[in-house]
């Protein structure tokens, strides 16, 4: 409760920060986890992959998820935002045909289909 007038810009900046940390960060964490989990697993499942590579790539998703939970400001909105972000990530990834980590390249299912047709 504040009786004096303070600049609106100060309050707005605080609210922008609040919206980012409370509402956007869980969504981004969900999206990133959804993308990183299958990518890590895919690399890990490659035939003949080195033991350490499998271990590290499989560890990426869970580590990122817990880091997100550590950083996120928790509120009743957090599970929903995380779920929506995860869903969005899974939906986007379902459109991907091939993903190359280095040099980075993404081929969508549609793109792969078009390439097959033209061949």
């Amino acid at each position: 409760m504040i009786a004096v007038k303070i600049p609106m810009s100060v309050l707005m900046w605080l609210y922008v920060q609040k919206i980012f940390f409370v509402h956007v960060v869980p969504l981004l964490v969900g999206l990133t986890v959804a993308a990183v989990y299958p990518v890590g697993n895919r690399v890990a499942a490659k035939a003949g992959a080195a033991f350490w590579r499998v271990m590290l790539m499989s560890a990426l998703g869970p580590a990122l998820m817990l880091e997100g939970w550590r950083l996120a400001v928790r509120s009743p909105w957090t599970p929903l935002a995380y779920g929506l972000g995860y869903g969005l990530g899974a939906a986007l990834l379902s459109r991907v045909h091939t993903l190359r980590l280095w040099p980075p390249k993404i081929i969508t299912r549609r793109g792969a289909q078009a390439a097959r047709r033209s061949a």
């Binding site: 504040i2 004096v4 007038k5 303070i6 100060v10 309050l11 900046w13 605080l14």
Partner: peptide, 17 residues
């Protein structure tokens, strides 16, 4: 009130006072 725990808000209130 978390907002009253921010230095920027306290500074603004002191300025307005």
């Amino acid at each position: 009130s978390p907002i009253l725990q921010r230095r920027v808000i306290i500074d603004s209130i002191l300025e307005a006072m």
